[in-house]
C-alpha cells in the first residue's frame, strides 16, 4: 500500500494562501477553520528585517500523537489509505484531547465563536445534522473519514483530500496536477499552488517525485524532535518555526 506524502518547497512558496482558500472551498470549512493555514513570522528590523512563511496542512504523522490520545479511536491512522489520519465524525465525542496533543496545531473544533460575523452558521443554518449548510457544498461526503460538512461537536482536520486521492487509478505514484490524467485526484492545495511549491505522491516508492525532491533538496520535517514523524516534508530556507517571542508591546522605549 502507498504512503502518501506531501512536499512543500519554501523557496518557491509565495505565501499567497491559495492553498488555504482552495482547501476551504473544497472541504467547505468555516472562515478561520483553515485546515491548511499559511503562517507568517517576522524577525529582525528595518532595513534588514526578515519575513518568513510556512504553509501548514496536517502532517499526517507516522506516529500521530492525536491518534494515541483519542479515547474513542475517532481519530485513527488508516494505513490502508496511505497512512492518512482521519477523524470519524460518527465517533468523536468532542473532548478535544487530540487538539491538545497535536504539536502542529492543525485540528479544529468548529463549534466555537465565529471568526467572522455575521456568523455563516446563522446565514446557512445546518440541515441534515450538518453544523451549517452553505449552498456551495462539495457533493462528496464521508463522515467516517471526516469528509464533508461536519456535524456539531466534533473535531475536523485536513484529510489529504482523501475523497480525491482515493479515486486515483491504482498505482498512481506522482500526483502531478499538470498531468490531465491525475489532475482531478490531486489534493486541492497542491493542485492550485501557482509556483508549484507543493508536491504529492507516494513515499513508499523510492523513485517517486516526492522522494526525489526530499533526497535532492534535503527535505526536513518540522518539529522532528516531537517524534511524530510527519509525512509532510519541507524544502528550502526557512523550513523551521522561530521560537515564540511575545509581541513587542511598545511600552519600553
Amino acid at each position: 500500500m502507498a504512503k502518501w506524502g506531501m512536499v512543500i518547497d519554501l523557496d518557491k512558496c509565495t505565501g499567497c494562501q491559495a492553498c488555504t482558500t482552495a482547501c476551504a472551498m473544497e472541504n467547505n470549512t468555516l472562515p478561520g477553520e483553515s485546515w491548511q493555514d499559511v503562517l507568517f513570522y517576522h524577525e529582525g528590523e528595518y532595513p534588514s528585517g526578515q519575513m518568513k512563511w510556512l504553509p501548514r496542512p496536517c502532517m499526517q504523522c507516522e506516529k500521530p500523537s492525536c491518534v494515541y490520545v483519542c479515547p474513542t479511536r475517532a481519530t485513527y491512522k488508516d494505513e490502508s489509505a496511505g497512512g492518512i489520519v482521519f477523524v470519524d465524525w460518527n465517533k468523536c465525542i468532542g473532548c478535544k484531547y487530540c487538539m491538545i496533543a497535536c504539536p502542529y496545531g492543525v485540528r479544529f473544533y468548529s463549534d466555537e465563536k465565529p471568526l467572522i460575523e455575521p456568523d455563516m452558521r446563522d446565514i446557512y443554518p445546518g440541515q441534515n445534522k450538518q453544523l451549517w449548510s452553505p449552498p456551495y457544498q462539495n457533493p462528496k461526503e464521508d463522515w467516517s473519514r471526516g469528509i464533508g460538512i461536519q456535524p456539531p461537536g466534533v473535531v475536523s482536520k485536513c484529510t489529504f483530500c482523501y475523497h480525491k486521492v482515493s479515486q486515483a487509478p491504482e498505482g498512481t505514484v506522482d500526483f502531478d496536477e499538470d498531468n490531465p490524467a491525475v489532475k482531478e485526484y490531486v489534493p486541492a492545495c497542491v493542485r492550485t499552488c501557482a509556483p508549484k511549491a507543493r508536491y504529492f505522491g507516494d513515499l513508499d516508492v523510492p523513485e517517486s517525485q516526492v522522494n526525489q525532491l526530499i533526497g535532492d533538496k534535503h527535505g526536513v520535517r518540522l518539529k522532528d524532535h516531537t517524534g511524530n514523524k510527519p509525512q509532510v516534508y519541507y524544502l528550502g530556507a526557512g523550513a523551521a518555526v522561530p521560537a515564540f517571542t511575545p509581541a513587542d508591546k511598545g511600552d519600553k522605549s
Binding site: 499567497c16 491559495a18 482558500t21 482552495a22 476551504a24 472551498m25 456551495y136 499538470d178 493542485r191 492550485t192
Partner: peptide
C-alpha cells in the same frame, strides 16, 4: 495553467452572496 490565486477559489461566494 490549472492554477489560481487565493481569490479565484472563492468565486462561488459572488454567486451565492446573500
Amino acid at each position: 495553467n490549472g492554477k489560481l490565486c487565493p481569490k479565484g477559489h472563492l468565486g462561488s461566494y459572488f454567486l451565492y452572496d446573500p
